[in-house]
Every structure is written in C-alpha cells, then in structure tokens.
Design a protein around this nucleic acid. Structure first.
Length: 371
RNA sequence: GGGCGGGUACCGAAGUGGUUAAACGGGGCUGACUGUAGAUCAGCUGGCUUUACGCCUACAGGGGUUCGAAUCCCUUCCCGCCCA
C-alpha cells in the first residue's frame, strides 16, 4: 500500500531520478543522508544540516534506545520534535552494531543481546521489537534488524548470518508500520549468487524499500560493485534502493549509475572532525603544514558557511587549536559538498547527461587535491 | 656571606654507573577513517647518511674516576627556597 510513496520521474541508463514521500516531506533522489547516530549530526545545527541540502538524515535506534531511551523520546513528542528536525528521518535498527560492537554481543535466531558500552547493562533487540521501537520514535523510514558479516567471513558463517537476516526480515513484516516506510535489508556476503538470492528473497517480502547491507566491510571496490549489481538485478523497479554506509564521491556516482537511490555515510562528518575536507579534486587534510598560510577558501566556488569568509589557514588554525567551530564549519563544508554532488547527479539524470557528469567528476577527482 | 634543593631533547617531566639517543605527557609532523562506543586511532619527532639498531653530536660549562657516566668526584656558571 505504500508503493506510491516512491515515484520515478526520469531515468538515464540504470540511474533513476525519483521522489520519496514520507510523513515529513519529500526526499529528492538520488539522495545522500548525513548520519546523526545520537539524534544529532555531530557539531551541526539542524537548520544548517537542512541548508546543506539534506532532506532526510539517519539516526540510530540502538544507540537511542540505550540513551536516552525510546520511551523518553516518545514522551517528549517523538524523535523529530526531540531533536528539532522537521525533515525526514530514517532510523537504523542496530544491525550494523553487530559488526561494530562485535565483542559486546550475543546472538541467536530470536535476536541480539548487547552489553551496553556505556554502563554494561544488557539490552535485547528482537526483529519485532526493533521495528516497534522505531515506530515509537516516530521514524519515517524504519530499517529491519539484520546480520551483516565482514569481508573474509567463512561461507558457513555467512550462510548462517544470511539465513538469520531472512528469518528476521519475515518476522519484521508482521509489524504494521502504519505511516512509516519499512525497508528490508539484503545480506549474503560477497558471493554473487548468495547476494542475488538474498536480494530476490527480500524484494518479495513486501517492503517499502530495499537496502543493500553488509557492504563496505573490508571488501575491494570491484567486489563491492559486483555485489551491488547482483542485487540490483533482482530488485523491482518501483522500490527505492538504498546502499547502506556508502559515502565517497566516486562510490556514490558509481552506485547512482547502477540504479541506487539512497545513501548514508559517516564519512563527511567524521572526516571533518579529523581535519579532512572533501573537494571536487579529492580529500584535503587541513592538518598538513602546507596550509599554514593558505588564504584561499576550502574550495573555490563553494557557498557553504565555511567557504564564505574563512581561509584554509584560519580553519586549519581552528582545527589545530581544538576549537569547536572547526568541527562545525568543516562538517558543514563536507555536507555541502555531498549535497551539491547529489544535486548535480539529479540534474544530470534529468538531462540525460549522467555519464558525462560522472566522467567529468571522475577526471577532476583524478587530478588530486594538492593544488 | 652561609645552608639546602635544582639545571635532562621544542616545552613539561622520569631516569641516579652498563640492552639510554634517553620512559611518560604536551606540542609539532605524517597517515588512517565508508548503516559513528570516534572532537578518534596509528606512526614519526637530535643530526647525517647507503634509513643501517651505521656514523656523529648529546643530559648547564670545564676537568676527573671507570673497561663503561645523564647517573660517582672536583670545579665554574645559572635558578629556587631558607638563614645572616
């Protein structure tokens, strides 16, 4: 019944120009979602995040359930009101934490038990509980619980995690998402056949969208691209496709060309907090001594808050001095950069010029960031 | 004038006869970062070179003792506290 929530207005090759309707507005796709794990895009005011071109951001159910708690957020009017964000919110289930917090978990087919990294308390996540919890938060797009495995995991372990992911996906479907959209997640490791089978199975469970999970976990780019292609081949046209955790410029462009609609990544904000900025020519580490006296903006032609009025030298100084403003300005620059990149791809798809656009960006990127 | 305590690499600070070019911090430099336990993490930080645990210069200055000294002795200079 939620199929009409996603419409495609233009195509260019495999790429799609679409629009996802949520309870909090429309999301123009292809879109990049900044990550706000703890109900904040670190260092940035929500207004600034919106100004960077963000229509939907990601928050993390698992982390918010631990702190400050789902009930508390619900009591205070839901996640949007709680964090002062009027746009759309996609919440991740905590599936990724099975990988990132690997030593702190115990799991079986019923779900996961986490030992809280904050206070050692144990928390249980079940497929249904996770969906219900995200509903209580008032999330616009709800992710199911899944079980990703890093590159290099044995076929047996991969098989078992994938089977469990499918089992959990089926159980998740028993919860009525109401106004929210419910997205399933494909796993299957990095073997093309198992990937494709997982995609086919997930695509047939009636979700409102399909995410490709378990990627960017140590695999070489070509293997990742093959895995993405294997999945896309199994997915129906009318469902939005979301590759979880992908976020370099080239990754985004390649995936858009393969028919992916949604992305999220911690990279722009995390890199910013370690002094690295994104530019059309590549990354730039402001910590490098060569920027000490550089009076130019982070990137010529950028209209972000950091590039309007501040020099590289000043921003480098702020960063090295440990000043909070550096985190904010550099984060915003990086969000603007990806916001512009995605706006560019949307325009290019509409004009049927995506490959030219990608070629240009790729060539620029190849020039390096050293000038 | 007398007594006591100090002077260690860019800074702070360990080390009191031998695997010490010298612990540990800070600072500096370099690198990593892809559904955020991350304002985090890792490496380098006397000089030179064939980057080698090779050579040189080093623990205020000078002189000794010793197979061997940042470490022990003598002396000079400087700093701090106390007494006159």
């Amino acid at each position: 019944m939620n199929l009409a929530r996603f419409t495609i207005s233009a195509r260019d090759g495999q790429a799609r120009r679409g629009r996802l309707r949520t309870a909090h507005g429309e999301v123009e796709t292809p879109a990049f979602m900044p990550v706000g794990t703890h109900a904040t895009v670190k260092a940035c005011h929500p207004r600034e995040v919106a100004e960077a071109g963000t229509q939907m951001l990601l928050a993390n159910f698992y982390h918010l359930a631990l702190r400050p708690g789902v009930e508390l957020i619900a009591e205070l009017g839901g996640l949007h009101q709680f964090m002062g964000w009027n746009g759309s919110i996609l919440t991740d289930s905590g599936g990724y934490q099975l990988v990132s917090l690997g030593e702190l978990i115990q799991l079986d087919d019923r779900g996961v038990t986490f030992r809280s990294p904050y206070d050692g308390a144990t928390v249980q996540l079940t497929p249904q509980g996770v969906v219900e919890g995200q509903l209580k938060l008032g999330s616009d797009v709800i992710m199911v619980l899944d079980h990703p495995v890093p590159f290099g995991t044995s076929p047996t372990a991969t098989e078992s995690a994938t089977r469990r992911t499918h089992l959990w996906a089926e159980q998740s479907r028993r919860v009525d998402p109401g106004e929210a959209l419910l997205f399933g997640i494909v796993q299957g490791g990095f073997e093309v056949g198992t990937r494709a089978r997982s995609a086919e199975l997930i695509a047939n469970l009636g979700f409102d969208g399909v995410a490709l999970g378990g990627l960017v976990l140590g695999e070489p780019p070509q293997i990742r691209q093959r895995a993405i292609d294997a999945c896309i081949g199994q997915l129906p046209e009318q469902l939005p496709r979301y590759v979880m955790g992908l976020g370099t410029d080239l990754d985004l462009l390649d995936s858009v060309a393969r028919g992916v609609d949604l992305f999220d990544c911690v990279l722009p904000t995390r890199l910013a907090r370690s002094g690295t900025i994104l530019t059309a020519r590549g990354r730039l580490s402001l910590r490098q001594a060569r920027f000490r006296r550089d009076s130019s903006p982070l990137e010529e032609g950028c209209h972000c808050p950091a590039c309007s009025g501040f020099s590289r030298a000043y921003l480098r100084h702020l960063y090295l001095a440990g000043e909070i403003l550096a985190h904010r300005l550099l984060s915003l620059h990086n969000l603007w950069h990806l916001g512009e990149l995605m706006a560019g791809t949307r325009r290019a798809i509409e004009l049927g010029e995506l490959s030219a656009f990608i070629d240009l960006r790729r060539r620029q990127f190849g020039q390096g960031a050293d000038s």
